Simulated assay, not measured.
Amino acid sequence: MRPRLWLGGHFWAGPDGEVQTAVVGAEFNLVISLFTRPGHGPYPGVDHLISEIPDGPLRAEELYSVQQLAITAAEAVRNDRTVLVRCHSGYNRSGLVVAQTLIELGQDPATAIALIRQRRSPWALNNQTFEHYLTTGLDVAYLLAGLDARA
């Protein structure tokens, strides 16, 4: 997405349409996984944060986790560390965290979303709820989701 910040998935389709696995070794200093499967890495010794979230509406604590992961990723990028944010296919959940990371690094939400769609895929961030979280602001979305939990 930008120097030192990568977005990906655990699976990808090859040129023949056959699904391939993406296994991470030691290519990155920090791997953030929003979906995990055994055998997909990263290697021992690589910082690995796991916060499995659904590809759908998020609860307040899940939105808070997205915020914290984005802050951590942005700090790592500022410190010249390479970061991979990944989910199942590298479109929505990882797109949400990477977009929020870009926002933490100074981008406005519309530019962050456009950058992800340009550099990853036009289908990235096709979850409209996630796009609304970003354009509304995760702080506001967190507060609103917390109100729903109290109802």
Rank of each mutant, 00 (worst) to 15 (best):
D47G: 01
D47M: 09
H48M: 04
S51K: 10
E52V: 15
P54R: 12
P54S: 10
P54Y: 13
D55F: 02
G56Q: 12
G56C: 13
P57W: 11
P57N: 09
L58N: 11
A60M: 11
A60F: 08
A60V: 12
E61F: 14
L63W: 05
L63S: 03
Q67I: 13
Q68P: 01
A70N: 10
A70W: 01
I71F: 13
T72W: 05
A74I: 04
A74F: 08
V77L: 10
N79R: 15
R81N: 04
R81Y: 02
R81E: 15
L84M: 12
L84R: 03
L84S: 04
V85D: 03
C87P: 01
C87K: 02
H88W: 14
H88Y: 14
H88D: 10
S89H: 13
S89R: 14
S89Y: 07
Y91M: 15
S94K: 06
G95M: 02
V97I: 10
V97Y: 01
V98D: 02
V98N: 01
A99H: 00
Q100G: 00
T101N: 04
L102M: 13
I103N: 06
I103V: 14
E104A: 10
E104M: 08
E104I: 07
E104K: 11
L105V: 08
G106L: 09
G106D: 11
Q107I: 00
D108R: 14
D108K: 14
P109N: 04
A110K: 13
T111L: 09
T111Q: 15
T111M: 11
L115S: 14
I116H: 03
Q118F: 06
Q118T: 15
P122N: 05
P122M: 08
P122D: 08
A124V: 08
L125V: 10
L125T: 06
N126F: 07
N126L: 08
N127K: 02
Q128H: 11
F130L: 03
F130R: 01
H132N: 13
L134R: 00
T135R: 10
G137D: 02
L138H: 02
L138G: 01
D139R: 13
D139H: 11
V140S: 08
